[in-house]
Design a binder for these strands. Structure first.
Lengths: 119, 119
DNA sequence: CTTAAAAGTTCGCGTAAAGCGTACACTTTG
DNA sequence: CAAAGTGTACGCTTTACGCGAACTTTTAAG
């Protein structure tokens, strides 16, 4: 967890350690331990913290740099088939099953494998 | 952590527990414990898992419903394969050629045709 | 079918560390 | 000046993480 970020979020709200800990339902010393880096929050705890401060867990641990939550939309340029997104693929308007997509992925992979062997 | 989501992500990549655990640098039983719900990953561990599966921690713990990372690209509800250029399709990060997509479309079409004949 | 290897499941043990209460220094408010 | 509030530090207890090992199930090869 990025200590500076949690501290920043709390100070912005002008909350004391005690008050924050009460909100989270944990002991003051426990929460203080998080901010000092003396202890690390459990998965459950950090989820509560993110909820409380209305930010993302990914922000708290430094995987993204924007504290906004829910995350800002972005423009998409490419779609990775092996990552199941919510985008539904269709052919002639009819949706493809996961099975079909997986078959296609397998097909492409072996195709590339064979291509690799040739060289 | 949402067990179904982690399991789904791993199966998508067709990885075994052992292989996945190796990638993460932990024991097979440890990772298996996560998926079965017997153990909960530490903050550090779930971060590694999110990195490995290229998704967000918030998705893994159910705070958002879109697995894509960086977070929440604009949602595409449907992508019609016969109309190119809406987005570039990739498998394992490598883009697919138009020819490959066309082959796939042809494959799906004949598959459906055969299905239709049966009935 | 037989059988060996790989994949997946479960569990006891040792121990790292989470969480708590408490104690202390310092600041603020009445 | 007390009295209450804030932040920091630490010992103790208990939780539960991570591991290896034993085991069952599935897959693949002969």
């Amino acid at each position: 967890m990025i200590l500076d970020r949690v501290i920043e979020l709390r100070k912005r709200k002008r909350w004391s350690l005690q008050f924050t800990a009460d909100q989270l339902g944990i002991a003051k010393s426990t929460y203080a331990g998080y901010e000092s880096g003396y202890r690390r929050p459990s998965l459950e705890a950090i989820k509560c913290i993110a909820d409380l401060f209305e930010t993302s867990v990914d922000y708290l641990i430094g995987r993204v740099d924007t504290p906004t939550f829910p995350p800002e939309p972005e423009r998409i340029k490419q779609l990775e088939l092996t990552q199941f997104s919510e985008a539904e693929l269709t052919v002639d308007g009819k949706p493809l099953s996961d099975e079909e997509i997986n078959q296609f992925i397998a097909f492409i992979r072996s195709k590339r494998e064979i291509e690799r062997m040739k060289v």
